[in-house]
Every structure is written in structure tokens, then in C-alpha cells.
């Protein structure tokens, strides 16, 4: 029986076991790939909250991904070099502790999302798309021209942050941390979507007048969703920097924002597990075609165009429909 739930559970379980087998057969590269899939899907799950359920087409979620990455990277590099990060109101050397890094990431990404949201949600339609893009570009150019943290070249952080004494430099251990985050994020988003707040959010995508007329302020609903969304995507950025031990402005690039939208679309818009399926497909596609030609993006372009024009609903939608026809 193919159902959205089953597809989702099967994909979660298979990712988990592929990782275990990769460890057993000593394939660290595969484990890194799986961690990447998970991190990308967390980022896209964050975006999906506003895009899939609230129909807010943010074309600037790389801002949160990148900010999460930079916050984590900056904390880590200062801790590594024992360099003072701030001297007032207290001395702070940055941190190498994952929990502290995540807390900072969530705090700053929520703050940024609040700021971007307050301004962007005044507009709608194409203006919303463009103003979110503009905010992300602002950060991108700032990162490029700000020399303290590597400017255009970015910087390396050498070691991953520590998590309760686990050896995070070992690929499979870091994978487990990412996987654990994915479970938490999936749990939180499915909670949100099926809550009164989630219903109000879904209502805002269709009919703002109706939402107002039952006494709900759509702006506040959308803003709260935007903040949650930014925080989730920020966590993904933090994990991504830890995975690669490298921070660069490309985290903030508009191609990154575009790719998050692509993950959501390929998996299936407005489905909780859609981004996971989409990111997995994307990374697998990149690996497979990338091994034949460095110009694999030509085929990616064709696939995206065909998906939008002929297969709305993405992979999950397609599988569900296929079953119905049988």
C-alpha cells in the first residue's frame, strides 16, 4: 500500500540503514552524502513551512542557511584560535559546544527572520519574492566584501563542534546527529501543520479576507511561521558548515535559495516529507549524472522543467497517482 506516510517512513528507514551499511563496508563518502541529503532536507523543510503551507514564496532562504552557517563558523573559529569574539558586557571566546552553537544559531536566525518577515510580509506576490531575494543578496554581498571572515574566499573551521563527548569527526557519528535533528524537525513540523496555528496558516494561502473575518490576523500568523521557518533553515546551515568544516558566501547565494525551492518541488509541494525525498533525489541525481558528465545541470534543468510542466505534485504526488491508476 503506497501512502504518503509509508513513502516517508520507508525513505527515513532506508537512509538510516544505508548509512549503517556504508559504515560497515567502510564507505565514508556515502555517509557524507547521506548527511548532506539530511541537511538539505532540513533546510527545505524549513522553507516548506512557509512556502508549501502558507504559499509564501521566499526566494531568500539562503539568508537563514548562510547566517546559521556563519554564526556557527564564527563561534567555532574563535574557540579554535582562542580569539576574543566579544569583550563587552562579558568576555566571550566563541564556543566549540554544539548545544551553544545551535542556541546562537536559532536566536540569530529567528531574529533575522523576524526582521525580514516584518518588512517582506507587507508586500505580496512577486514583490514578496523579490524583497526576500533582496534581503538574501544584501547578506551575500556583505559577506563577500567583509574581510574579517575571509570575504569572498570564506574560511575553514578545522574541527567539528563537540556534542557530549561524541567523536563528531567520525562520519557516522555526525550522521547520527544530523539524523536526530531531522527527526526532531519532522516531528515539530508535522505538529505545527496539524495544529490550530497550522490550519490558520494554511487558510492564509487561500483567502485573507475570510481569515480576517473570523478574527484572525493573517500577518501575525505568517510572521510567526516565517520566524519558525528561518530558525529551522538556520539549523541546517549550522550543520552544513560543521559537515564541510568550511564557511563561504556561497551558502548565502541565490542559487542556494533556488535549490531549496527545487527540493520542495521535486519531492512534492506542501507535503511534510516532500523536501526529504526531493533532496535525496537531487543529491543522487548529482552523483549519478555527475559521474558521467560535469555538465549534469543541463539534465537537472530539463528534469525540473518537465516536473513543473507535466508532473505537478512531485515524486510523492506521482507515486500516489500511479497507485490510484492501477
Amino acid at each position: 500500500m503506497i501512502s504518503e506516510k509509508n513513502i516517508s517512513y520507508i525513505s527515513l528507514i532506508s537512509i538510516f540503514f544505508i548509512a549503517i551499511f556504508s559504515e560497515y563496508f567502510n564507505e565514508p563518502y556515502l555517509i557524507t552524502l547521506l548527511s548532506r541529503i539530511i541537511i538539505f532536507s532540513i533546510a527545505a523543510i524549513g522553507l516548506n513551512l512557509v512556502l508549501g503551507f502558507g504559499n509564501l514564496i521566499s526566494f531568500g532562504h539562503a539568508a537563514f542557511f548562510g547566517l546559521g552557517g556563519y554564526v556557527s563558523g564564527i563561534l567555532a573559529i574563535h574557540a579554535f584560535n582562542s580569539e576574543l569574539l566579544i569583550s563587552w558586557p562579558f568576555l566571550f571566546n566563541g564556543s566549540n559546544n554544539s548545544l551553544i552553537i545551535w542556541l546562537f544559531t536559532i536566536f540569530f536566525c529567528s531574529l533575522l527572520a523576524l526582521l525580514v518577515g516584518v518588512f517582506s510580509l507587507r508586500t505580496s506576490g512577486v514583490y514578496f519574492i523579490m524583497i526576500t531575494l533582496a534581503f538574501a543578496q544584501m547578506l551575500y554581498y556583505f559577506a563577500i566584501s567583509w574581510p574579517s571572515y575571509g570575504g569572498e574566499d570564506g574560511f575553514s573551521i578545522y574541527v567539528r563542534s563537540t556534542f557530549f563527548g561524541i567523536n563528531t569527526m567520525k562520519g557516522i557519528n555526525f550522521f547520527f546527529i544530523c539524523f536526530f535533528w531531522l527527526l526532531i524537525i519532522l516531528f515539530i513540523t508535522s505538529k505545527i501543520v496539524n495544529s490550530p496555528f497550522g490550519l490558520a496558516l494554511r487558510a492564509t494561502r487561500f483567502n485573507l479576507t475570510r481569515v480576517r473575518s473570523v478574527g484572525i490576523n493573517p500577518f501575525r500568523i505568517q510572521l510567526l511561521a516565517f520566524v519558525l521557518s528561518g530558525a529551522i533553515t538556520g539549523i541546517a546551515g549550522s550543520l552544513y558548515v560543521d559537515l564541510n568544516r568550511f564557511v563561504s558566501p556561497s551558502l548565502l547565494s541565490w542559487q542556494m535559495s533556488g535549490e531549496f525551492i527545487v527540493f520542495i518541488l521535486i519531492g512534492g509541494l506542501g507535503r511534510i516529507y516532500g523536501p526529504l525525498i526531493g533532496a535525496a533525489f537531487f543529491v543522487a541525481f548529482e552523483q549519478f549524472f555527475g559521474s558521467y558528465t560535469e555538465h549534469w545541470q543541463i539534465f537537472l534543468g530539463i528534469i525540473i522543467i518537465s516536473t513543473v510542466l507535466f508532473a505537478k505534485g512531485g515524486i510523492i504526488g506521482f507515486m500516489l497517482k500511479y497507485q490510484k491508476n492501477e
Binding site: 512556502l51 514564496i57 526566494f59 519574492i129 533556488g258 525551492i261 527545487v262 518541488l265 509541494l269 545541470q297 543541463i298 537537472l300 534543468g301 530539463i302 528534469i303 525540473i304 522543467i305 513543473v308 510542466l309 505537478k312
Partner: peptide, 12 residues
């Protein structure tokens, strides 16, 4: 959304 995606894909 569809327009953004398709024209993004055209860039790639």
C-alpha cells in the same frame, strides 16, 4: 512559483 522554478531551471 512554477514560473520561478522553470525559469530557474532554464538558467541551469
Amino acid at each position: 512559483l512554477d514560473q520561478v522554478l522553470v525559469t530557474f531551471a532554464l538558467i541551469l
